[in-house]
Amino acid sequence: MREISYSEAVRESMSQMMREDEDVYILGEDIGVYGGAFGVTSGMIDEFGPERVRITPISEAAISGCAVGSAMTGMRPILEIQFSDFVVIAMDNIVNQAAKMRYMFGGKAKVPMVVRLPSGSGAGFAAQHSQSLEAWMTHIPGLKVVQPSNAYDAKGLLAAAIKDDNPVMFYEHKMLYNVKSEVPEELYEIPLGVADIKREGKDVTIIATGLMVNRALEAAEQLAAEGIDVEVIDPRTLVPLDEKAILQSVKKTGRVLVAYEAVKRNGFGTEIVSLIAESDAFDYLDAPILRLGGAEAPIPYNPELEKAAIPQVHDIYQKCLELLNR
């Protein structure tokens, strides 16, 4: 099968959905001839024109509300927030409007929109352009939260997100944009709420999200060389969460590491740990659950400091050994 990059997969998914459904359009800053800050929408304006690939003023408060208003009246907008950090300027429309509209109005409205959010550190953009704030969104009933870790998942999950009648926060990792993997040419959907076992194993379970899935897989390779058989679970969507897949794996291995890039304190991994602790899978644990998360600091600029701020492959490797008392 052909290989394409994560960024191409996102673009292909949007383009195929836009060919299929005239109500789908994209809006955001510099997404026209510029192609967006990360080039994800490159060339789309040539095919779909400026009506459906709609460049906006730098006005997150207006464009996010505009997306909500157009979604509730029959369109299916995809809003590109240039860097996920800027979502804080759009927060009212996401938290107080999009997420609650259906409930507040007694089920008489729906808000089918996708907010695409390039997130994460590693590119030297420092504290205001590198955060991983997905856990904030998971706290809001009414929002769905998706975090693909490879090109194949990105394409299928985005198609499902666009077809979904609820507001979906779609976290793309900027360090994954150039990573290639096998992706079918035809349009396909990956249902929201279904985790993926990225690697099967019996000794340790790593539940990882976003970029950390890739790092967990690398660590698992190294551990395999030492005879340790690691299972890597990627929830793929944080809301809805595939609790069953997580708990099954915990019961199988009895040893759990949760790895995520966001600040460790109250990151989404905390929720996963609570889920395990409150379930019958708790009785299967042979060691305390361990967590690896980002430093409780803003993301720094210096490349060495930046690296130190989030878990690396070696950290994951070490934690797995710790779980096995080795």
């Binding site: 909500v68 157009s70 009246t73 107080n96």
Partner: peptide, 22 residues
């Protein structure tokens, strides 16, 4: 809809007007 957030209706209305135009 009414709205509990001051000025929130303006961007929402702008989006509804965009639907009408598109």
């Amino acid at each position: 809809g009414a709205n509990g957030i001051v000025a929130a209706g303006l961007p929402l209305g702008t989006g509804a007007a965009l639907t009408s135009q598109m």
